[in-house]
Design a protein around this nucleic acid. Structure first.
Length: 224
DNA sequence: TGATGATCATAA
DNA sequence: TTATGATCATCA
């Protein structure tokens, strides 16, 4: 068993690949891929996600687009507990703090990313050694009309605050399903934003994240 | 104990 | 610096 060398040519092939690794542990997948699993994730936070990317044939690299652009599909791993409940929020994408003119919910990066997602749940309990954590059965998700409306409402509220130069007042408490939190290598990293007078200021980079209450719903629908 | 704010690694 | 892959760690 070894990772594919080519991206999947269609949705069925992608789903088949994800089901072929279901039930296997991260240690097994690392071994078959010829890489060494780290002891823990303290200094390797994105490691499971990148390992799964390899196994599904996603092209590595950091592009502000979906993982499978030809298929219009975004790949997300999500750590879960024994009840299939999410253990962490889900990073969606970078939050631009200098507004792009003319961007609406329909054309936003958030909506583009979430339009169609292949969720790959992984055992994430910190008591389980990293190599022993198993991959669960992946599934496709598309926002329902209600979910889309909810995400749109949050996105528009948060985006308006950014537009009004209120980036500094945004806290992770805002947003019912989608919220904004810092996203950087450290607190020293700074990027441009605008203050209420339209003057440029430096602030910590932010990202959009899905709350666990939102992803919990998706997982419950899938696994009961 | 869960959520918020902080942080780690890497690529281009 | 802007992004990607996210989880860690602290505190209410």
């Amino acid at each position: 068993m070894q990772p594919p060398t080519l991206p999947p040519s269609n949705e069925d092939e992608l789903l088949r690949r994800s089901h072929q690794i279901a039930g296997l542990s991260l240690g097994e997948l690392a071994h078959f891929a010829g890489v060494v699993a780290p002891e823990n994730l303290k200094r390797h936070k994105g490691w499971p996600g990148m390992l799964i990317e390899r196994w599904l044939g996603a092209t590595a690299g950091s592009k502000p687009q979906q993982d499978f652009p030809e298929l219009g599909i975004e790949l997300k791993t999500i750590p879960i507990d024994k009840h299939f409940s999410p253990l962490e929020t889900t990073y969606v994408c970078y939050a631009p703090l200098i507004n792009q003119p003319g961007v609406t919910w329909e054309t936003s990066n958030v909506r583009n990313k979430l339009q169609r997602v292949l969720w790959v749940p992984l055992e994430g309990d910190r008591q389980i050694p990293l190599s022993n954590r198993r991959v669960a059965t992946a599934f496709f998700w598309h926002p329902s009309a209600e979910e889309d409306a909810l995400l749109q409402k949050d996105w528009e509220e948060l985006t308006e605050l950014i537009t009004l130069g209120q980036s500094e007042t945004i806290t992770a408490r805002l947003g019912e399903a989608l919220h904004i939190r810092p996203k950087a290598a450290s607190g020293q990293v700074l990027t441009d934003a605008l203050d209420p007078d339209g003057k440029k200021i430096k602030t910590r980079p932010r990202g959009f994240y899905l709350r666990t209450s939102f992803t919990h719903g998706l997982l419950q629908r899938q696994f009961g």
